[in-house]
Design a protein around this nucleic acid. Structure first.
Length: 212
DNA sequence: GACCAGGCACATC
DNA sequence: GATGTGCATGGT
């Protein structure tokens, strides 16, 4: 499995090159994006992010003081906006209570402990927690999402009903414990899924992983 | 107009 | 512990 994972990475990297993830201007934008993208097309998330920026609301203190109803109206385009506004508020409450709204402070927390704390916040599940850890705070943890599972199950590397922790283990046991690597690998899988695996059979011969 | 998209919590069996 | 359901908008 180790060789296979390394080979897949090499193929994807030579096909697509570096992906420069997460697509955001700063860490706080990554965190908000991680909530907004739950069960939602990224295009709709971008609109919501743009709206927040337009209102200069994409800043911890500003959002913390804003009502859920107001946040909800600004992020409407991302879908599930009422629930997402509540989730963002839950996170901000936690963020200000424990770390005074300071990303530097939160980042100093041990990864294992921070992951547990994040998962205890209502609205943060494994993918959102890991996206925050890896893409906002540069912690070495592998993010598993629908794209990751789709690519790997279609290429016969996991069962399509494999759980989050199991898939994450496959990556984390077999790759160097390196945030940059986890970042690039996951981003490349998303790129592949968006370009090929959504509509094409992996055995078509066009997909760069053909033969895996 | 149907179907889908980078989850999560909660109810029910 | 597995399975089902609500949450909702905008693109294809």
């Amino acid at each position: 499995m180790r060789r296979k994972l390394q080979d897949i990475f090499r193929r994807l990297y030579s096909e697509f090159g570096p992906q420069h993830w997460w697509p955001a201007e700063d860490s706080f934008e990554v965190i908000i994006g991680a909530f907004l993208t739950q069960g939602t097309n990224w295009l709709n998330v971008e609109k919501a992010i743009a709206r927040l920026k337009e209102k200069k609301a994409l800043e911890p203190g500003k959002l913390f003081r804003m009502s859920s109803a107001k946040i909800s109206s600004l992020i409407k385009s991302s879908g599930y906006h009422n629930i997402k506004a509540a989730r963002i508020k839950e996170f901000l409450k936690f963020f200000f209570e424990i770390y005074q709204g300071d990303l530097g402070k939160m980042s100093k927390e041990k990864m294992r402990k921070l992951r547990k704390l994040l998962l205890s916040v209502k609205g943060i599940g494994p993918e959102t927690a890991d996206s925050i850890l890896l893409y906002a705070l540069n912690k070495p943890v592998f993010v598993v999402d629908a794209y990751t599972k789709r690519v790997f199950s279609r290429h016969g590397l996991i069962n399509d009903d494999a759980g989050y922790a199991h898939v994450q283990d496959i990556f984390m046991r077999n790759l160097k414990n390196n945030a940059k690597m986890f970042n690039e690998y996951h981003a490349l899988l998303v790129r592949l899924a968006k370009d090929y695996c959504r509509k094409l059979d992996p055995k078509c011969g066009i997909c760069p992983l053909h033969g895996q």
